[in-house]
Computed example of a mutant assay.
Amino acid sequence: MCTIGNVFIPESNGLISFKQCDLEKKTEFIEPIIEQGLGDIKYLPFKRVGSNGPWAGVNNYGVSFVAADAYLEVTDKHIAVLKGVDQDIFAAYTKIISDCKTAQEAAVYMSKFYKSFKSPDILLINDATSSYFIETNEDVVECIERTDLFFASTNHFRMLYGGVLYPMNHSSYLRLVRAEAALEKNTNAQGPFNVLKDQYFGETVFSICRVNSETPPQESPYYTQATALFFTDGHTVNCAYQLNGNPRTNPYTLITDVFGTHTVSKNISIRESKELLTKV
């Protein structure tokens, strides 16, 4: 379970994309290292132990991706089912940031990829000026482009049929409402940071920032274990993240000019992070 989204920042002529990574079992998240992509592309993938590829990432052209697991309606058992993820999807995620120089190029590639990838998926691809939100299930693929304001998604489909319904998974719907409210209130760098620390429903699975606590019977015990935000104005890429914890109790690491001067600042507060993320 995850919360993903973005916000266009007019005053900085750029975009922030973000992901809150929630897992059921405690997992080790790895410090990101810049890797070489196709030609002159360099990219920063975020990885975790036991996975075949990145759960989020960005490249020096400002192309980033954040993805969320899609939960489906299962009428015979009345439960939510997590999609199966195999090596193919992580190879495709890697290609977004290792081979593509625009969000549009990446969206075209992924839309074709999903035609033969039968598992459900939810994906948000971004660069400085455009964003593509994709949902897929079986051989159905829906893709919309956005060029302003903000967007958020959790674990139920917003465009396709067959997604988990509210009675079967309250969390996905409640987190989406909270994310949209926070982004609508602050359509700047503060918005995403407010989303990621949100605990309107307390330390429960219903909140965006979740801890390992008692879980109601219709939900799975997922809790926040990592967070990543990417900013680009088409020239410079900045990144803020926290790993192996949650953003309310774990300080951020900030990398300014990721693919240039690559200045790393550790133990940065939320206030400092939101002030510095969009500075170029």
Rank of each mutant, 00 (worst) to 15 (best):
L254W: 04
E142M: 14
I270L: 09
D76R: 11
G162S: 05
R146L: 15
Q199A: 09
A70R: 10
I208H: 05
D69S: 13
N186T: 09
G234M: 09
N52P: 04
S64L: 02
L82R: 11
V63F: 11
I144P: 03
V81L: 13
I122M: 07
E138R: 15
C21M: 09
S116Q: 11
D121T: 13
F18I: 02
T75N: 12
D69F: 02
V164H: 08
S131T: 12
V258N: 04
E138I: 11
P216D: 02
I4W: 00
N52E: 13
V264Y: 01
N52G: 12
L165I: 11
V211W: 09
Q87L: 01
N13A: 08
A92I: 03
P54G: 02
D121H: 14
L160P: 05
L276F: 06
M168S: 09
N52H: 10
H78W: 08
T263V: 13
R158G: 07
Y93G: 02
F46Y: 13
T147P: 07
C2L: 01
K185E: 12
G202C: 13
K77I: 10
T278E: 04
F90R: 05
F46D: 02
C100W: 02
K266F: 02
L149M: 08
S213D: 10
P120I: 02
N250Q: 14
E138K: 13
L183G: 06
A228N: 06
E275W: 01
Y241V: 04
Q218F: 13
L165S: 10
L243Q: 05
A228T: 06
L15N: 15
S98G: 03
N126C: 15
N13I: 02
I270V: 13
P251D: 07
A107F: 03
F18Y: 15
E73R: 15
V280E: 06
N169K: 09
D127T: 10
G37F: 01
I96Y: 08
N60S: 06
K274Y: 15
D139P: 00
A181W: 04
G260T: 05
T75Y: 07
N238D: 06
T75P: 11
M110I: 14
R158D: 08
T224N: 09
